[in-house]
Amino acid sequence: MIRMAEKFEPEVVRTSQPQVRERTDDELVAAARTGDEAAFTQLFKRHNSLVSRLGYRFFSRREQVEEIIQEAFVKAYLALDSYQGGHEKSFVSWLARITVHACYDELRRIKKRSESRLGDLSQEEEEFLTERLRDLSAGSNVEGATISRDLAGKLLARLKPEDRVVLTLLKQEELSIAEIAELTGWTSAKVKMRSHRAQQGLRRVLRKFV
C-alpha cells in the first residue's frame, strides 16, 4: 500500500533550507474535521494534482477530469470522519481509492448514457489501426500519436467499466493485483479474473476493427 501511495505521489523537490514544519496530512484532516476551512484548503492544494493525474488515466477531456476532482474532494470531505490515518501516506492511498471509485462511477454513467450511440471507427482510423498492427516496431510520429489518443478513447469506451478500471491500473499505473484489489475494494480473485477478461475483451474489440 505504501508503494502504491508513492506511485501516486508526485515528486517533491526538497530543499535543504530550514523551513517551518508543515502540518502532516493526518493533522490537517483532524483540523478539517473540526471545521478548519484552511486545513481542507491545504489538503486540496497538496493533493489536487494526484487526483488530476488519476482522472486523466480514465478521461481525456479536461472538463471530465475537473468533474472527477470535484467529486473526489467532495466525497473525501464528507467522509473525513471515516478516515483512519496512522501512516505518512495513508491520506494519499485513501484519496486515491476515493478517486478511482469516482472514476468508476463516471465510467458507468457514461456507458449507460452512450450504450446505443457508440459510433464505428472512421475509415482513416481503421486504416491506422491496421497499419500499426502491421508494423508495431515503427516509431510513432506526431500525427500518429494524435490519432491514437482519440482512437484509444473510442476503443476503450467499448470495454465494460470494471474492465477499463482494471486494465488502466494494470497497464498505466503498473499496479499489482493486490494493489488494485486494495484500491477498488474488490477481492484479489475478482481482480485477477477481471484482468483476464478485460484483456480478452480488448483483444476482441481490436480484432473487430483491425
Binding site: 481525456s60 491514437s148 489518443r149 476503443l155 483483444r203
Partner: peptide, 12 residues
C-alpha cells in the same frame, strides 16, 4: 494485439 493495446494506453 496486446502490444497494440499497450500502445493505445500509452497514447492516452
Amino acid at each position: 494485439l496486446d502490444r497494440l493495446s499497450d500502445e493505445l494506453f500509452r497514447a492516452l
